[in-house]
Simulated assay, not measured.
Amino acid sequence: NATLQQRLVPVRLFYDFLVEEGVRESNPVGRGRYTPGRGRGGGSARGLVPRMVKLPWIPAEAEWLQVLKVFRAEPIRNRLMLALAYDAALRREELCSLRTEDIDPAHRTLRVRAETTKTRQERMVPYSASTGVLLGEYLRHRAALSRARGPLFLSESRRNLAQPLTLWTWSKVVRRLALAADVPRFSTHTTRHLCLTDLARMGWELHAIASFAGHRSTESTLRYIHLSGRELSARLNASMSHLHAWRVGMLTGADGRGTE
Results as ranks from 00 to 15, higher is better:
M124C: 05
S241G: 05
R140C: 08
W246L: 07
R185S: 10
G150T: 14
S130C: 07
V53G: 07
V112K: 09
E20N: 13
I209D: 09
Q163G: 01
T109Y: 12
D102K: 01
V19F: 02
T218C: 06
E156M: 12
R111Q: 09
V19P: 08
G37I: 08
R176G: 05
C96H: 03
L90Q: 04
E260D: 14
A88W: 03
W57N: 00
R31V: 13
N237H: 12
A245M: 08
L167D: 11
K69V: 01
M81W: 04
A129P: 10
A208P: 00
L167S: 09
R147A: 15
R120S: 07
T131C: 15
P164Y: 12
F71N: 04
C96T: 15
V174R: 09
L177A: 00
H141M: 15
S157E: 12
H215S: 02
L222K: 04
L227E: 01
P28V: 02
Q5A: 13
L4E: 08
A234C: 05
R185M: 05
R12D: 07
P184T: 11
Q66W: 00
I103F: 08
V53T: 14
L199N: 00
G256Y: 03
R201G: 01
L232R: 03
M240E: 12
T166H: 11
R142Q: 09
A200Q: 02
N160V: 01
S44M: 14
P105F: 12
